[in-house]
């Protein structure tokens, strides 16, 4: 029996909204420790790695590890019926062929419950090697979202280069070239406005803006976003969910022909 109760159901709704355009049919893996998802997009260019610790839940029971095969666009439709302040309860039997979702509104006392048929999704688990990245940048997630949105006007590829000058985002297209340079900023009193750049060695990589834009759907989950890069490796873009988990996106770089 799997049963989990999340007082702030909105967190789970935001997680679904942050990945449902990138990965459609996913397994939500339930273990005694956490709910997790690891899934590549259909083109095998990006990987989503989500984790939500059992400590995020007011009640968490998982007798046996389960994989709940779900179609995220359908899950997203169900979450449209959840109130902002609702408590969310997930429930599935061990012989899981369906998932119960319940939304409880403490104030009005209403309880909505939905049953989703589960899908058998063959899991292609990937081994993601632990890497000591050469550059690690923490910045306001709203700033990253704005940069990605603005540069999409200029072209479809974003060059991200981290040097001692700072972190530069560049895009070139028919109408010209755009560059946005961010420097380390730990002066502002608001922690969330800080930009910290840890650079062990300079890195310059190119990425498809279409994917970076997908990733910024996770902006509501976290005021800060962490970018990690090493020469010739996929970038990791991490949205921490307080101390409870994260949504991480891995994106393969674009290479010179």
């Amino acid at each position: 029996m799997f049963e989990a109760r999340l007082a702030n159901g909105n967190i789970f709704k935001m997680i679904v909204e942050s990945i449902r355009e990138l990965v459609v049919d996913v397994n939500i893996d339930c273990s005694t420790e956490e709910l997790s998802i690891q899934c590549m997009d259909s083109a095998h260019v990006a990987l989503v790695s989500m984790s939500l610790s059992q400590s995020a839940f007011d009640h968490f029971r998982c007798d046996r590890s389960l994989s709940l095969g779900l179609n995220l666009p359908n899950v997203s439709k169900i979450f449209k019926m959840m109130g902002r302040d609702d408590t969310m309860v997930l429930k599935a039997e061990d012989s899981a062929d369906k998932l119960m979702l319940m939304f409880e509104n403490d104030k009005s006392g209403t309880i909505a419950d939905f049953e989703l048929k589960l899908m058998a999704i063959e899991a292609e688990q990937l081994g993601v090697p632990d890497t000591a990245y050469k550059c690690s940048i923490s910045m306001p997630s709203s700033e990253f979202q704005r940069i990605v949105r603005d540069l999409q006007v200029m072209g479809d590829t974003c060059k991200i280069s981290c040097t001692k000058e700072g972190l530069k985002f560049s895009a070139t297209g028919q109408i010209g070239t755009g560059n946005i340079l961010m420097r380390q900023n730990v002066a502002s009193e608001k922690e969330e406005d800080h930009v910290t750049i840890d650079m062990e060695e300079p890195v310059e990589l190119n990425f498809a803006l279409r994917y970076l834009n997908f990733f910024t759907k996770a902006t509501p989950l976290s005021p800060t976003v962490i970018l990690k890069m090493s020469p010739g490796l996929p970038i990791v873009i991490e949205y921490p969910i307080e101390q409870l988990g994260h949504v991480k996106y891995y994106l393969a770089p674009k290479m010179e022909e």
Partner: peptide, 14 residues
């Protein structure tokens, strides 16, 4: 111009 890489070139299937 730039060619999009695949993650399969970096991550191994378990």
């Amino acid at each position: 111009n730039m060619k999009q890489g695949s993650l399969l070139g970096f991550f191994t299937k378990k």
